[in-house]
Nucleic acid binder design. Structure first.
Lengths: 230, 230
DNA sequence: TAGTATACACTTGTATGGAAGTTCAAGCGG
DNA sequence: CCGCTTGAACTTCCATACAAGTGTATACTA
């Protein structure tokens, strides 16, 4: 009995059907597995996930609030197309938030988060050299999260994450070229260096530069993938 | 026939039951008509609004994503209590966004939005002198929206609005004192003046000051209303 | 043939019943 | 008196049926 208790009586929270559908659909929309402009049907998705329409409907509503799908009453639901405007808006909002985060990080970062961020950069370097985009992207997110957590701004990260989806979706068009990952690692290091020095202005500039460069590679993509843009 | 068409054949979009429940519950939670910590029941709310449980459930989920209620699976749904931490987080996020907005407004504001913002300030002055808190708050929102719209940042305002709810909820404890409205009008004018001059640094300082002062009056309220705070 | 009306096949929105889980209190056994 | 069990009364979550609106294709009319 005592042993059983020590063995972590699964505190694992089981995910609701609605949450699972939302998570998987969201991932598909962001990595463009589900194409922009594609029509989604509650019934069809329900069949595919082996659930009823209700959880699917809740997932649709959640995705609509994130600006990823457009639910048109009595007409249908479509994945919103890519939009340069939306991408620039997302970048603007994200920059405002992450700039504020690194500015605060310059005051409150401690050694624990510094080590963690540094380790994440190293891991990203390896992933970049290995050409592992999936791991690279996950580590990228974790680095930004580490900054927010170290600055005691996790709530702000939630707001960032919603915007990040719109940037990631456009980046998914091009990030399959391995050469684009290297510079991002250098930029992360520059941000962390400035934060460690407590140099707010330099950290802000580094973050701003980083977020600008992310979208450098996607310039002109709307001409190349006209059917995916509105 | 032609006349009928000219007479705006009601383009009035009818609000879904779920949207109506969410809107009314949200308003009640923000103005503290629905008290922090209060338990909400799908059935009870459904009866009160004369709808089924399903739209109510969707409203609950939407409010949960806004951080206004806490849906505990198979246990119940409660209105989240006030929290100094949450309020400071909201202020941090809102400041980051609105500072970026006014900075951009200094570049792109045109006469149309300048006039609109100026008119809103005048109207706010009247409402303040009349002691009309409801009108004052509505005009306050409209002023900030005008800034965002004039800066071409309406998307950013959506993000602000979610955080604003948490600040408004705390402010609702004290904004019934008419003396607190006057200074806010002056602060709005200072922001607009700086924007009109295109002085970004001054505008940023004015906005930052404004958002700090909003919470000045609520210092120590958690000691006075301990049952409403967590 | 052109135009209109209508039926039908979709869609999302709502209502309702039941499944699964949690809480709490009464009742039983020590 | 204390502790465990058990069952009733709640909750949210899911499945299903139906209601209501939209677009389209077809058939009918002039």
């Amino acid at each position: 009995m005592t042993v059983a208790i020590l063995h972590q009586p699964p505190p694992r929270i089981i995910e609701s059907a609605a949450a699972r559908v939302e998570r998987e659909l969201r991932a598909g929309i962001i990595d463009l597995t589900i194409r922009p402009g594609e029509r989604l049907s509650e019934s069809e998705i329900a069949d595919r996930f082996q659930v009823s329409r209700q959880p699917v409907r809740e997932a649709f509503i959640a995705l609509m609030r994130q600006g990823l799908v457009d639910v048109q009453p009595q007409r249908g639901t479509v994945v919103v197309k890519l939009s340069v405007r939306r991408m620039l808006d997302a970048r603007f909002i994200r920059e405002a938030l992450e700039v504020a985060i690194v500015r605060r990080a310059c005051e409150r970062f401690d050694s624990h988060y510094r080590d963690r961020a540094s380790a994440l950069i190293s891991a990203q370097d390896e992933a970049a050299k290995a050409g592992d985009h999936v791991t690279f992207q996950r580590l990228d997110s974790l680095f930004h999260i580490a900054l927010a957590e170290g600055a005691d701004c996790l709530e702000a990260w939630n707001a960032v994450e919603m915007q990040k989806a719109h940037m990631d979706r456009v980046c998914a068009l091009t990030l399959h070229s391995s050469g684009s990952m290297g510079p991002l690692v250098v930029q992360h290091q520059a941000i962390l260096d400035a934060v460690e020095d407590g140099d707010a202005e330099r950290a802000v500039a580094a973050m701003s530069h980083h977020l600008s460069e992310i979208l450098r590679a996607v310039a002109g993509l709307e001409l190349k993938f006209t059917e995916l843009f509105e």
